[in-house]
């Protein structure tokens, strides 16, 4: 369920915490396992993480369902996390989200038929001076305009 490579990555996180506190690494472990499994988690993968970190399955499930950054159903290869909170909203995020939905042909929450992208509306990402903005993977894209969005989306492969 968890690859050797993933285990190594998880172990590196576990090493940051005191002995016996390996469950501190659960958030990263879930992310690592999610990344290896088409960007979403299943009961089995959550249980596997729990087992690996020697914690109750339900405790890992609590974490996996509490935080935003885990998916429990299939998502696209790229999730466009579009901020729609106040500063971005004041700077036109809503119109741009509508533009983006039109551009990719699916609504927020749905995945494009080719499985490439989906849009998710998220709360403030802490880049408000660059509003409006969104995040894809590790990368922030700020001061968005319709043109800029087109260019970014066209570049997704």
């Amino acid at each position: 369920m968890i690859s050797t490579k993933a285990k190594k990555q998880i172990d590196a996180w576990v090493a940051k915490y005191p002995e016996g506190r390996q469950s501190s690494a659960v958030m990263e472990a879930l992310k690592i396992v999610q990344a290896e499994n088409d960007n979403s988690l299943t009961s089995d993968s959550i249980q596997a993480v729990a087992d690996y970190l020697d914690m109750p399955g339900i405790a890992a499930a609590e974490v996996a369902t509490f935080y935003e950054n885990y998916n429990h159903k299939p998502v696209g290869k790229y999730t466009i996390r579009f901020c729609h909170n106040i500063s971005c909203m004041l700077n036109g995020a809503d119109d741009l989200i509508a533009h983006l939905e039109k551009k990719i042909g699916v609504k927020t929450g749905d995945v494009t038929p080719d499985g490439l992208v989906n849009v998710k509306k998220v709360e403030c990402l802490g880049a408000c001076v660059g509003a409006p903005m969104f995040q894809i993977g590790d990368q922030y894209y700020e001061n968005l305009t319709a043109d800029k969005i087109d260019e970014i989306v066209d570049g997704l492969k």
């Binding site: 915490y17 506190r21 469950s23 501190s24 992310k31 974490v63 935003e68 998220v122």
Partner: peptide, 27 residues
């Protein structure tokens, strides 16, 4: 000194939720 990463929950900015989260629990 170590860096820990959150996973998307505003409430973890509240200091005791942050500690819970650092302990691998929900915030």
């Amino acid at each position: 000194l170590y860096a820990h990463l959150g996973a998307g929950a505003y409430i973890c900015g509240e200091e005791t939720a942050l500690l819970e989260s650092l302990e691998g629990k929900k915030g």
